[in-house]
């Protein structure tokens, strides 16, 4: 009984994570600028993979009643390092002068370069 409930929760988590990853790919395909693309990639993709791994963790709990600690460690590691990677890339892209879109009206970092 409880295994069935955990399995259904795992299915919902996996489908939610796959949809989130697809939304991230759509943003990377459609957005006009490198900064907006990195916004899409580093947030939605990280959250999608965290959802999928939570689903896998719940699946293995329901299947053989065994907790997988390295999977939890992987979730925590992705949660820590995904936004840091996006931040590093965007900082370097701003310093080497990758242009932004025409719709940008304000650049607060102009004097800090």
């Amino acid at each position: 009984m409880i295994d069935t409930i955990i399995n259904i929760a795992a299915m919902i988590f996996i489908l939610l994570g796959a949809t989130m990853s697809f939304v991230s790919a759509l943003g990377l395909y459609r957005l006009p600028d490198v900064y907006t693309r990195a916004h899409s990639a580093s947030k939605a993709s990280t959250l999608g993979v965290m959802f999928i791994m939570t689903g896998v963790l719940l699946f293995f709990i329901a299947k053989d009643h065994q907790f997988q600690p390295s999977l939890l460690l992987a979730i925590l590691f992705i949660f820590l390092t995904g936004p840091i990677g996006g931040h590093l890339i965007m900082r370097s892209a701003y310093y080497i002068g990758v242009p932004y879109t025409k719709k940008t009206v304000r650049d607060d970092l102009k004097n800090a370069k």
């Binding site: 490198v34 990639a41 580093s42 993979v49």
Partner: peptide, 20 residues
């Protein structure tokens, strides 16, 4: 920077594929 962002996202998606 576009390519590096895309390759980072590819690596993260590869982790999801291995989990599935």
């Amino acid at each position: 920077a576009d390519r590096v962002v895309a390759l980072d996202a590819l690596g993260i998606s590869l982790m999801a594929i291995i989990a599935l």
